[in-house]
Structures are given as C-alpha cells and as structure tokens.
Amino acid sequence: MKRLLLIPLLLTACGATSTIDGVKTYAYAGGDHQEGRIAYKETHPVGGPHNAQWQNCGVYTQNLYPEYAVHSLEHGAVWVTYRPDLQLSEVLALTEALEGRTHTLLSPRREQTASIVMTAWNAQLELDQASDARVTAFLQKYEQAGTAPEAGASCSGAYRETQ
C-alpha cells in the first residue's frame, strides 16, 4: 500500500519545476509596430517595438533583421540563433530539435557572444551546446506560450528576407 502512495508523490515532484536554469526574463508589452531600423536595449532583442510584418518561421542561413523576428516572438515563436562559427554538427542538432515545430526561427547571428541563444517574448537563454537538455525545455515552455502577447497568430505568409 505504501508503494502505491509513493508513485503519485514522485510524479508530482517531477512535474513541479517550471523554471529553467539560466533563463533571463524581461517585461515588454506587445503591439508596438514601427517602420525602419529599431535600436533595441538588448543586443539580442526579447520584445518591444517591431515591424508590422513578422518573419516567416523556419530555418535560415543568414542573419535576420531583428525588427521582423521580434514580431514573430510576439506571435509565440522561439528564435534560436547561433554564432556563425558554430560547428556544423551543432547547427544540425539545433535544426533537428526544431523539426516539426510551427513557431520557431533558426538563424546565425553575428552580434552574439554565446554559442547559442534561445529567445522567446520576454525570455532568453544562452547555451554552449545544442545537446543541452534546456534546448527542449525552453521550446516546450515558450513556443506558443501564454507569455507571448499574440500567441497563436501566424508565423508564415509575411517577411522572408535576410540581411
């Protein structure tokens, strides 16, 4: 009888963690559409003003304009970026982790110092390796999450250009 009582307790304990170690959070409101280049407070923007068009979700081999990518974040996308010198095997592992997901962007980003940066609206995580378990945890927590002002909005049919 004691054994049966322990199982629900263990399952509850496993599901209790809702934070991901290392995630930095911010407090930007959505809906601020602006034209042209935007000077962001963070080197890698996590929210704030953005272009009226969003970046089509998908895998890119060139830098993206942050003004469009931030709009995708507002729609509930997760933007995964990597340093251009990241090993191909790591880029392929990130591509595989995003496969089948509808609201993700993958692109290199010259301006970052971390190997990998995962960004959602008001949340960001820096990583050294694609094999880090926090890659999946971040995607599960933030893709199409209620933390994005317009979660559920389209992530296709808009801007597809790169820098």
Rank of each mutant, 00 (worst) to 15 (best):
S107G: 06
E126Y: 03
Y159F: 15
T17P: 03
M1A: 12
L86E: 09
S156C: 10
Q34W: 04
H75Q: 07
E143A: 00
A77N: 00
T17Q: 12
V135L: 03
L105N: 01
G30M: 09
P45R: 04
G36Q: 10
K24L: 12
S18N: 12
G58D: 05
K141I: 02
Q124L: 02
T147K: 01
I20D: 04
D21S: 13
L5R: 10
S131R: 09
G30V: 08
G146Q: 01
S115H: 12
Y40C: 09
L92C: 02
S89E: 14
W54A: 15
R134S: 13
Q163H: 14
L139D: 07
A93R: 08
V70E: 05
T95V: 05
M1H: 11
T147P: 00
P84Q: 10
S156L: 12
Q129Y: 11
Y60F: 12
Q124W: 01
A151C: 06
I7Q: 04
T113K: 12
M118G: 06
E42D: 12
D21I: 02
Y65P: 08
P66R: 03
L92Q: 14
R109N: 15
T25D: 08
W79T: 02
A148K: 08
K24P: 03
H33I: 03
L86Q: 08
L139M: 07
L64D: 00
G30N: 01
W121Q: 05
V117Q: 12
C155E: 01
D132N: 11
V78K: 05
T81K: 06
E150N: 12
T19G: 09
K24T: 11
K41G: 08
L10E: 07
A52S: 11
W54I: 12
Q144A: 11
H103V: 10
G152P: 05
T25A: 12
Y82L: 09
E90F: 11
G36S: 10
V78E: 02
E150I: 01
F138R: 03
Y60I: 04
H33K: 13
